[in-house]
Design a protein around this nucleic acid. Structure first.
Length: 571
RNA sequence: CGGGGAGUAGCGCAGCCUGGUAGCGCGCAUGCUUCGGGAGCAUGAAGCCGCGGGUUCAAAUCCCGCCUUCCCGACCA
């Protein structure tokens, strides 16, 4: 491609409404333009990156035996009524009516449609298993779109759905996708990690998120420093500690102390001159079926998902002021386990063996000190209900966990028979018995993956694309296109590379060299070859690698071979 | 939905407080000189000053309403 025939509207200045690096660079490099909040046009340069990314995804999906199809973007409400999600999905589902007042929605995901397709086409176990996928548009009317294409409302997603005859088959399909995803992100040239995610009511280890590691990532992930355990914070478990209860002879005297208006851990600590690790934080939750008190150490944070899973309740939310008063007899900020009656008390493992703690007194402006569990109150159970953090013990190997940040670019999930049951996607087994198909779903946000790649790989000059998704592999900078000789040398090289199927961009613009070099760095093409005065004078071309900044001179005669040699080693 | 910014030329911004010919830098067009890391000079095109209403002789500027957009939070995956 010749630059003058292409469209790369680069911006020198950072657009005012872009906050994160990937968003800024995608705008500045001319990959995207915004149309409305969370809605972007993909320009030719960005399109090339998207297509390269999609193509790798497609190849790996195909290799894993998945079949590509395209499902409708506009979906009839009836399907969503059938699955029961029309009333559950909320405002994120953009609903609309056609001219006949029939209700439709823009697809935020395609479980309903794919289940409808499959139930109409597959009726025998002989046709299973099957995995179908598309790379297509989605629309989710996010409450707050942000970070450019990272959290857009309209976006391109690869979504795949597997259908199996039984659980064992579904697990095999899941593992195939897990392997395919690992291949995909490796081929894309990304540093990533698959982490265990909360799988909600399904249970088991059948939900993984694929996270691109980047300091600017929105999600915190927990990784074991020794084994290969990794999970997102919602899911990350902490090994139950092997701690004895503290010896009673060290117990201090239980005492009620006045703590006027001291509600937060910080206030209580500074008032009583103690530290958060010596405080029992008591949180009252509403399960929809009675209140529960959860205890964690003052320097720990509750993990509501883990608590919810432990309690096996369908709803869980922090109690409101009224419920707190009803349960504890005191306003918010003074709840404590001592003397608490009529609610289940679940304590985090982190409180095991604690001694002489501070807790709320269940009375306005009162806390109690020297609280000791075995003497002053009892809990219904100990459980792992806090957020894992740096230094906590790995659930697999007991070594310390560490936290790092990442961007979720893929999610694989075992669905079970949720949709096949509600939507009657059944097949007959060898005995003629009817069963619902066992499903799985597998998503990759293509645009988000591109953004994550940029987030992970850039410098102050611009994008540093991983070679597999770079819009072009090689950029020839023709320094002075009005110079006959330079022009000829550059054109020859360009044609030769094109002839060998190399993705090459020839910057033949009549611009000053500085502009061309700046743009080259900005759009992040892995290998830059400069044809300028050196080419004419000494017969030398300059090759420069975007990633390392390494620069070598290549004699004209060797240049072509040197470039071909370099290509496979680009990363 | 709550809190906080911002809407003026394609982009970045000033002007608004204190009402009176709409400006600057970059970009764009033309010419000349330049040409290995965002050139210089000259000339030029480009604006419903977010929208609607009000006050006023007069509104980018003051008042009211609305819309859009960005950030934080709540929410979601």
């Amino acid at each position: 491609m010749r630059y003058t025939q292409f469209l790369i509207p680069t911006l020198r200045e950072v657009p005012a409404d872009a906050e994160v690096v990937s968003h800024q660079l995608m705008l500045r490099s001319g990959m995207i333009r915004k149309l409305a909040a969370g809605i972007y046009s993909t320009l030719p340069l960005g399109e090339r990156v998207m297509q390269k990314t999609s193509q790798i995804v497609r190849e790996e999906m195909n290799r894993a035996g998945a079949l590509e199809l395209t499902l409708p973007f506009v979906q009839p409400a009836e399907l969503w009524h059938e699955s029961g999600r029309w009333n559950v999905y909320g405002k994120e589902l953009l609903r609309l009516k056609d001219r006949n007042e029939r209700e439709f929605c823009l697809g935020p995901t395609h479980e309903e449609v794919i289940t409808d397709v499959v139930r109409g086409l597959i009726s025998s176990y002989k046709q299973l298993p099957i995995t179908l996928y598309q790379i297509h548009i989605k629309f989710r009317d996010e409450i707050r779109p942000r970070f450019g294409v990272m959290r857009a409302r309209e976006f391109i997603m690869k979504d795949a759905y597997s259908f199996d005859a039984d659980e064992a088959g579904a697990e095999r399909s899941y593992m195939k996708m897990y392997a395919a995803y690992t291949n995909i992100f490796a081929r894309l040239g990304l540093r990533f990690r698959a982490v265990e995610a909360d799988s909600g009511p399904i249970g088991g280890s059948f939900s993984h998120e694929f996270m691109v590691l980047a300091d600017t990532g929105e999600d915190v992930i927990v990784i074991c420093s020794a084994c290969d355990y990794a999970a997102n914070t919602e899911k990350a478990e902490i090994l139950a500690p092997d701690v004895r209860d503290a010896a009673p002879d060290r117990f201090g005297v239980l005492e009620r102390v006045a703590t006027p208006d001291m509600r937060t851990i910080e206030e209580v600590c500074s008032f009583l001159k103690t530290d958060p690790a010596s405080v029992i934080k008591t949180l009252v939750f509403d399960t929809g079926d009675g209140a529960v008190a959860a205890l964690v150490r003052g320097d720990h944070d509750i993990n509501e998902i883990k608590l919810k899973n432990y309690l096996k309740c369908s709803e869980l939310s922090l109690a409101d002021e009224e419920l707190i008063e009803k349960v504890t007899g005191a306003p918010r900020g003074f709840a404590g386990p001592v003397g608490l009656r009529g609610v289940r008390i679940i304590a985090d493992y982190g409180l095991k063996g604690s001694i002489n703690m501070v807790a709320g007194g269940n009375e306005r402006d009162v806390h109690v000190v020297n609280v000791n569990m075995s003497r002053d109150f009892s809990v219904d159970a100990f459980a792992d209900i806090r957020l894992a953090g740096d230094g906590d013990a790995c659930p697999r190997c007991a070594r310390p966990l560490t936290t790092t940040r990442g961007i979720e670019v893929g999610h694989i999930f075992k669905l079970g028979t949720k949709y096949s049951t509600s939507m009657q996607a059944q097949f007959l087994d060898a005995q003629g018995q009817s069963h619902p198909m066992v499903m799985g779903c597998y998503g990759i946000g293509v645009g988000r993956t591109v953004a994550a790649a940029i987030e992970q790989s850039h410098d102050s000059d611009g994008i540093i694309f991983p070679a597999p998704i770079a819009p072009f592999s090689v950029l020839i900078v023709l320094v002075n296109p009005t110079d006959e000789q330079q022009n000829q040398i550059a054109a020859d090289l360009y044609e030769k590379l094109l002839g060998h199927g190399v993705d090459v961009l020839l910057d033949d613009r009549d611009e000053r060299p500085g502009i061309k070099f700046k743009d080259a760095d900005l759009i992040g093409i892995p290998l830059r070859v400069t044809v300028g005065r050196n080419a004419v004078k000494d017969g030398c071309l300059d090759m420069k690698w975007r990633k390392t900044g390494e620069q070598v001179q290549a004699p004209l005669a060797d240049a072509f071979d040197r470039i071909l040699e370099a290509l496979p080693n680009l990363q």
